[in-house]
Each structure stands twice: as structure tokens, then as C-alpha cells.
Design a protein around this nucleic acid. Structure first.
Length: 193
DNA sequence: TAGGCCATCTGGTCCT
DNA sequence: AGGACCAGATGGCCTA
């Protein structure tokens, strides 16, 4: 290709010459691929954002479902996320504790001897929620370090305690007594009344 | 106005 | 490769 060889050889290329045109074409192509890459990345990001939003919506829906099965409060304020989780944790513990005590104290079947579910639930609710003293923030009764349950915090290693060594959730030992069907204190092996 | 809560975006990591 | 999950950042809204 003689023409090419000649142009590459020496004299300054005239503006708009074939070399210049090629360079411009390459520049445009590169810009186009970069733009394409950018839009591709962008669209992936947008999609990922969409999925993430969706995921969080599902998570929140599940949290709402959890709220709906937890006993509501007089003031009916919506529990925050962390409150919901902590309260559920305590509620489950209180329910199982109620069952445990009931099994300990009640005569074996027939079924009539079983603790009515609603009473058990009410007791557990009281246990899990109490003491919801007015003016106290959620942290004091739902959160990790409740001063009202020092003994249970101390015995956090016990399998039946809702407290963990790291996060000593409120342990409603006192409020379990609110349930009239249960003894004030029923240490393991204590005679049932 | 400060602080708490929340939704959303984002980049990184892990898993399928 | 693409999706799920996670944690940090950011900004908006609300309340004391």
C-alpha cells in the first residue's frame, strides 16, 4: 500500500487526512463502548437497587406479620424493628416458661387440665411486655440491659433464660406472677399448690 | 435542634 | 454471570 507507506513516512498529515479520520473513528468507538459500559453498569445497579428494595420490603412485611401476632399495647404504638424482635424474643421465652410451669404444676391429662391457650398467651404477653412503665423508653423494657431483671441476667447461661451473655434481654420473671394461675415462685422441684 | 428511626443507595462478598 | 445478603453512608421525617 504505497499511499499508506508514504503518509506514515514523513510529511505532516493534512487535517482531515485518512490517518486523522481513523484516529477520530477510534476515539468515537471508544467513547461509544465506554458509554455502553456505563449504561450497562448503570442498568445493573438500578436492577440491583430494585432487588434490594424488594428484599427490604419483604423483610418489613415479615416484621409486620410478626408484629401482628404479638400482643398489642394499650397505646397501640407501633413497635420499632428492634423492639419487635426483642419483644418477640421475650414473648416466646415467656410462653415457653408458662408452658413449663403449667406442665410442672398441673395434673396430667385429660385435656381439660391443660392451660387454656388464651390465658397462657395473656400471661406470656404480660410477662414479655412488663414492666411497660410510662415514660420509660423502649430500651428499658425491651432492650439488652434491664435493671429490673438482674438475677436472670446473671444466670444468662441457663438454657431457660431469655438472656444471653452478650445481650441480656429483659427477663420478665416478676411479671410472670401476674398470671394468676401460676405460683409466685416455682423453683425446680418445688411442690405445686 | 438533636437524636432516633427508617428507606434507599451503594459496593463488597458469597453462593448458585 | 447474576442474584442474595450484608453493612456503611446518606437524607428525610418525626418527636422531645
Amino acid at each position: 500500500m504505497p499511499a499508506e507507506a508514504a503518509s506514515s513516512g514523513g510529511a505532516a498529515e493534512p487535517p482531515g487526512g485518512p490517518r486523522e479520520q481513523r484516529r477520530r473513528r477510534r476515539g468515537r468507538a471508544r467513547a461509544r463502548t465506554e458509554a455502553l459500559l456505563h449504561t450497562l453498569k448503570r442498568s445493573r445497579r438500578v436492577k440491583a437497587n430494585d432487588r434490594e428494595r424488594n428484599r427490604m420490603h419483604h423483610l418489613n412485611a415479615a416484621l409486620d406479620e410478626l408484629r401482628s401476632v404479638l400482643p398489642t399495647f394499650p397505646d397501640d404504638t407501633k413497635l420499632t424493628k428492634i423492639e419487635t424482635l426483642r419483644f418477640a424474643y421475650n414473648y416466646i421465652w415467656a410462653l415457653s416458661e408458662t408452658l413449663r410451669l403449667a406442665e410442672q404444676c398441673l395434673p396430667p391429662p385429660p385435656a381439660a387440665g391443660l392451660l387454656p391457650a388464651r390465658r397462657a398467651a395473656a400471661a406470656a404477653a404480660a410477662a414479655a411486655a412488663a414492666p411497660p412503665s410510662p415514660g420509660s423508653d423502649a430500651g428499658s423494657w425491651l432492650s439488652s440491659a434491664s435493671p429490673s431483671a438482674p438475677s436472670l441476667c446473671a444466670s444468662a447461661s441457663g438454657p431457660s433464660s431469655p438472656a444471653t451473655s452478650e445481650d441480656c434481654a429483659y427477663a420478665p420473671a416478676e411479671s410472670l406472677r401476674a398470671f394468676r394461675g401460676l405460683p409466685a415462685a416455682a423453683p425446680p422441684g418445688a411442690p405445686c399448690r
